[in-house]
Design a protein around this nucleic acid. Sequence first.
DNA 1: ACAATATTTAGACAATTGTATAAATGTCTA
DNA 2: TAGACATTTATACAATTGTCTAAATATTGT
Lengths: 92, 92
Amino acid sequence: MDDSLFRALADPTRRKILELLTEKDRTAGEIAEQFPIAFASVSHHLGVLKAADLVASEREGQFIRYRLNTTVFQEVVRYFMTRFGGEGEKHA
Amino acid sequence: MDDSLFRALADPTRRKILELLTEKDRTAGEIAEQFPIAFASVSHHLGVLKAADLVASEREGQFIRYRLNTTVFQEVVRYFMTRFGGEGEKHA
DNA sequence: ACAATATTTAGACAATTGTATAAATGTCTA
DNA sequence: TAGACATTTATACAATTGTCTAAATATTGT
């Protein structure tokens, strides 16, 4: 379980970005306009999320469209379930 | 979902502490001796984990014993499952 | 080629964080 | 009460981080 993953999740703006991407894929601009901070700052957050492999992106003409990488979230859930899964479901 | 929770999880030493507490409850000293950093630093990490409600502690004579608060981990799992639709970790 | 739009990258700066040492607090036992 | 042990709190400092503005890169249309 990569360190960059948890560091990426530690920022509330980035978590909000992830939740936005849950609804639908969005371009960098569509994401950025949801926040009161500079576009460049949001771009930086997107870079962090991408480095942690939580999102992927692809160019679409002028735009760059971002989408969730759901695979990694499943790994996160598995991390918590196996290590801290609470009582009962010990399925090692 | 509290911000302090994700910030607490962002540090690898703290995650290691949590994993140690998965095995069994431990005193501050037993935890601290597992790490190459100063006891005071580990104590600080324990404070962060406690503030995030990830662990609880109680005095036992000279010692202070720490234990996982599993309830919060279940909330974490629920957070990821509900928002980021983890399909694939079904169990029984 | 030029201008407009979309986004990222570079550089700077203040706030936060992880660590260390030293001092303080709490507990036990002689 | 004194002294030893266990742990936390106070303080300082270097490293990391989130934000900004300005400049750079990429694409589209004229």
